[in-house]
Structure formats: C-alpha cells, structure tokens
Computed example of a mutant assay.
Amino acid sequence: MSNHEQLLRQLIESMTASGSLRTQPWKDAAAAVPRHGFLRKGFFRVVPGSSPTAWTPVLEHGDGWLEACYADESLGTQIAGTIKPTDIRGEIMREPTSSSTLPSLVLRMLEDLQVEPDMNVLEIGTGTAYSAAVL
C-alpha cells in the first residue's frame, strides 16, 4: 500500500469515527478519489503566530505536502483572487479566495443531498474539483 493510500484510509476512518462519513457508497466514493491529485499545484499554509494572518506556499512534494493533503482541513489554493502557491516565495498577507474544502464537510454535504446513482447533479464549484470528483 502506498503512502497516499494509507493516508486516505486513515482519513476515511477518521471521518467515519466522527460521524461525517456514514454510508458505504460514500466511503467507497471517498476511497476512489485521491485528494492529493487535486492539490498538485500546491496550497497555502497559515504561518504560525502571524497577525494579521500570513500564508506561505506548500508545493507538491514539499515538507508535509502529502500529509496535509489527507488532513481533514480546508487548504487554501488561491489568495487575493489570482495568486497561486507557485507564484510566490516567502509569505503573503492577503485573504484566501479559493480552497479545497475539508473532506468531512464535502462528504457530509454529499450524503445529506441523498443523491441516487441515476440522478443528474449540477455541481458548480470554484475550488479544486475534489467535490465534483467524489460526486
């Protein structure tokens, strides 16, 4: 089992234990979608202790990148409407404008939608397309 498969399995177990992920079809959907594939262009991490909040880019294969991809947290993927993680070095103190939403919220909302296999769903997102892939 690869490292990302192990991290994904741990994330699914955690979401199941917390009650965010309740049914087998959605567990299967979550297991079929490797979240790191939607974060290859990187994301922004909060700089600890910064005030106002500063962000620093985390690029693919960087320190902690893969582990963060499978953490149950939202990951900012764009700042100030146009700035991507690959656009800067160092820190930036602007507001995030796009993200990969925390997986437990995505799965809980999709389960609550009560989608059946033959239904059509229009999913309009502005993030990484992780939600659409799970759907």
Rank of each mutant, 00 (worst) to 15 (best):
T56Q: 14
A132L: 11
Q78E: 09
S98T: 04
R35I: 04
R35E: 00
A68R: 14
D28H: 08
A129W: 02
S99R: 14
A29I: 06
E73A: 15
S50R: 11
R45S: 12
T86P: 00
V106S: 04
D28K: 13
T86W: 01
P25C: 04
G42M: 07
L105G: 00
Q24S: 13
T77P: 01
S100H: 09
E111L: 07
M15P: 03
M15C: 15
A30W: 02
Y130M: 02
Y70A: 09
T126P: 00
L75H: 07
V46E: 13
T56C: 10
L11N: 07
P85Q: 05
G19I: 11
L66D: 00
T101F: 05
L21G: 07
S14G: 02
A68M: 11
G90C: 08
G42Q: 07
E111R: 12
S98E: 03
S104W: 05
G42W: 03
R45Q: 15
T16A: 13
E5N: 15
G42V: 08
G19S: 10
K27S: 12
K27E: 09
A54V: 02
G127E: 00
W26P: 10
P52G: 08
S20H: 12
L11D: 04
T16Y: 02
T128R: 05
L8D: 01
E13F: 07
F44G: 09
W65H: 15
A129R: 14
A29K: 15
V58G: 04
T128S: 09
S99C: 11
I92C: 04
G62D: 14
L66Y: 01
S2D: 11
G76L: 08
N3Q: 14
P85K: 09
T82R: 13
Y130L: 05
I88E: 00
M93K: 15
R35V: 01
G64D: 01
C69N: 07
V47D: 06
I83Y: 06
S14T: 12
Y130H: 03
A31C: 06
P52Y: 03
V46H: 13
K27Y: 01
I79T: 02
A132N: 03
D63S: 15
V121F: 00
T101R: 05
Q24P: 11
S2C: 09
T56L: 08
V121E: 01
S131A: 15
V106C: 08
